[in-house]
Design a protein around this nucleic acid. Structure first.
Lengths: 206, 206
DNA sequence: GCATGCATTGAACGTCGTTTAAATCCGTGA
DNA sequence: TCACGGATTTAAACGACGTTCAATGCATGC
């Protein structure tokens, strides 16, 4: 069988470019979920979806780009989880606590994929991706809206939201890396409630 | 020239094993400081100190172990920085704010090396290193002592310290990964002050 | 003087991310 | 109808990486 090898059969299947990108992102996400960030590699990923590595380079980009796509998906899913946690009827404080619990519940349900968001450091010379900032902003906007009745001034509210967000991020980060359990036996949800209550307790501050 | 190559010349120089370990850790730290975590590799590190890679394996261990050594050094340095920030004469609130500023100042002065501490995820099956938990605990103890006059009950204080620590960690983490600047233009130190003031404002809480 | 242990080395092994060049298909315009 | 250009895919090559292996010589104890 010295037949010429099958190479370059043109577009395989009937998927569009965006469908292929989604396929790559979902496969990469599953790989991280099952084996952690170290299990995500270009060749592994290509093997999982049944394509050659260069097809991923062609449709998506290098491994950093793939990781950013997965992270964008994660932010989208977090956005949906947070959006489902707020209620127009509840008080701002109750909504804030509910958001915190939803956040930590999301992290607890998918710690490996979530960890990828902050474990991955993008190259310092590379510009911060526009769509990434937007996805982050859309998620933050939910928190901002929930706190609007409590802190009417936009500047002050933006600072409070950023600080609270960072606090939740810290709790989630230390929790997934097992550094929080070293400090205290309470689950991160309890500490998040403590954080929100104390932070929002005296609402008016400089 | 078919002379036998120079191989295995025995202990080179007059350094002890621990001195060599320190040499490796310092070189690795410098490499991370200059080029980030991605710049730290076994072969690069060996080339920097002028040895073959296997000498590092012999004296220290694999790359994960080297990274943990660097992180231990970082925690020690952070401990010293925090210890210098508290004053027996100042109020607990003032000490807490001073600690927060010292923490963020430390991170800002050495972001790449500090980032290595939380960017590096240890293998999930590996046990949490004893000495690592101890180094973390020793650093946390400074915060705990500073807050002791404000929150006398130990359990409640432990929770508060862990939550505040996580909040600072979150601010520093988002700041070094440029995700905080997307949310708000204030420097992380301002948000840390906001966090500490709001969190410690109403000291008695459940 | 000799054997044993240890630090050290170059080379090898397998894997990785990425690039290159070739091969094939598809849409389009003449 | 057919040629052609672009898009898609593939295998192979490239360089670098972490790690291991086998060899080698120095230092030390007997």
């Amino acid at each position: 069988m010295t037949k010429t090898a099958r190479r370059g059969t043109g577009p395989r299947g009937d998927h569009s470019r965006e469908e292929f990108q989604a396929l790559v992102a979902k496969a990469a996400e599953g790989l991280v979920r099952k084996e952690g960030a170290r299990g995500l590699g270009m060749r592994r990923l290509a093997a999982v979806i049944g394509y050659a590595p260069n097809s991923i380079y062609n449709a998506v980009g290098d491994l950093d780009t793939v990781i950013m796509r997965v992270n964008a998906r994660t932010l989208e899913r977090l956005h949906d989880a947070l959006a489902a946690a707020v209620s127009g009827d509840a008080s701002p404080q109750a909504n804030a606590e509910s958001l915190a619990q939803a956040y930590l519940g999301f992290v607890d349900a998918d710690p490996q994929v979530w960890s990828l968001v902050f474990e991955h450091a993008l190259a310092p010379d590379a510009a911060f991706p526009e769509w990434y900032a937007e996805a982050l902003g859309r998620t933050i906007a939910i928190v901002d809206a929930a706190l609007a009745p409590l802190i009417p001034q936009a500047d002050e509210r933006r600072q409070a939201v950023a600080t609270l967000w960072a606090g939740l991020h810290g709790l989630a980060s230390l929790s997934t890396s097992r550094k929080l359990a070293v400090l205290t036996p309470e689950p991160p949800g309890d500490l998040a409630r403590l954080l929100v209550r104390r932070f929002l307790g005296g609402a008016a501050a400089t």
